[in-house]
Amino acid sequence: MKYALYLLVAVLVIAHQDVFNWDDSSLVLGCLPVGLAYHVAYTLVTALMWVLAIKVAWPADVDVPADD
């Protein structure tokens, strides 16, 4: 599972470089520039990926309650 997580992170690193939006100043919903809207969506996808990560790839050997 941890390799799938590495792959997902690598995909998101690449997806951050949205060269296709570079010169585009059109507006999404009439108010949000597309370059900004893309990165807002990117942030949400990132949060979802971390939800998945803590569910399936949480390092079990550190998840121990404190002893004091």
């Binding site: 939006n21 570079w22 585009d24 100043s25 370059g35």
Partner: peptide, 8 residues
């Protein structure tokens, strides 16, 4: 154009 709305 409005340059602040893109990264160009």
């Amino acid at each position: 154009v409005q340059p602040h709305l893109s990264r160009r």
